[in-house]
Simulated scan of single mutants.
Amino acid sequence: MTLTFTLDPVVDPSLRDGILALWADVSNAGGAVGFVPPVGLDDIRPALDEHLAGVARGGCRLLVAHDEGGEVAATAFLTHNTHRLQLHWVWAYTVMVHPRLQGKGYGRELMAATEAAARSIGNIDAIRLTCRGGHGLERFYASCGYKEVGRVPGGIRVAPGDDRDDVTMLLPLY
């Protein structure tokens, strides 16, 4: 299967619904994208609306991958920093691949497309992202060239008594 990546697509109701469904499917499969299962579309919708408002304002870029059937298969958001001393790097967040596609190399394709998107912005020296410890995500991102540059032990409370590390990863682009 081939994924088609689009940076800054037109956000219409169909795309919005596709991202919403993807986010729910990833979350309910145990993905570390800001929610804990079980989660419904109504739980996720406000977070997606906030993400898309950032896209509409121009401070955030959206990268979407569609599968051969036209379904939203993966996403990553890139956001610019607003502090004048941090304009040289971007954050990647809500990086997700549909569970039916995981383990088949599509995550690496998404990360390569994310890197290409960041490079296309111009004057960007690095991409930073955070991930939830306990999922092996650090190893995945490291295999894509990212380096762990920070860790807050127990920085993410998944549930009472279930704290995970908040891990910061960096990909230099120079």
Rank of each mutant, 00 (worst) to 15 (best):
C144P: 09
L170E: 15
L171H: 13
V158S: 05
S143W: 04
G154V: 02
L170Q: 14
L171N: 12
D163K: 02
R151N: 11
G161A: 09
G154I: 03
R164P: 06
E148W: 06
D162Y: 01
M169G: 15
D166T: 04
Y174R: 07
Y174M: 00
T168P: 13
L170K: 12
G150Q: 02
V158P: 00
D166E: 15
K147I: 11
D162P: 00
Y146R: 11
G155N: 02
P172H: 04
A159D: 10
L173S: 14
A159F: 03
R157T: 15
P160Q: 10
S143K: 08
I156E: 01
V158F: 00
R164W: 01
V158Q: 12
T168F: 09
C144S: 10
R164Y: 00
E148P: 10
G161Q: 01
R157L: 15
V152M: 01
G155W: 03
L173G: 14
T168A: 15
V158W: 03
L173Y: 06
R157Y: 06
V152E: 09
D166I: 09
L170G: 07
P172A: 12
Y141P: 12
Y174G: 11
R157G: 04
C144L: 09
L170Y: 00
Y174T: 03
D162N: 12
C144K: 05
Y174H: 15
G155A: 03
G145E: 07
Y174F: 10
K147D: 15
V158K: 09
G145F: 05
V158D: 02
A159Y: 01
G150Y: 02
D162R: 11
A159T: 04
L170N: 08
G154C: 00
E148Q: 14
P153A: 13
R157A: 13
I156H: 05
R151M: 06
G161H: 04
L171Y: 12
D165S: 08
I156T: 01
D162V: 14
P160S: 01
D165T: 10
Y141F: 08
Y174E: 10
V167F: 10
L171Q: 13
R164I: 06
R164N: 04
R151C: 14
M169N: 12
A142C: 08
P153V: 10
V158H: 05
G155K: 00
Y141H: 05
G161M: 06
L171M: 07
A142D: 09
R151Y: 02
A159L: 08
P160I: 14
P153W: 01
G154F: 03
Y146V: 11
M169W: 12
L173M: 06
D166H: 07
V152K: 02
A142T: 13
R164S: 07
Y146W: 13
G155L: 05
Y141M: 12
T168H: 08
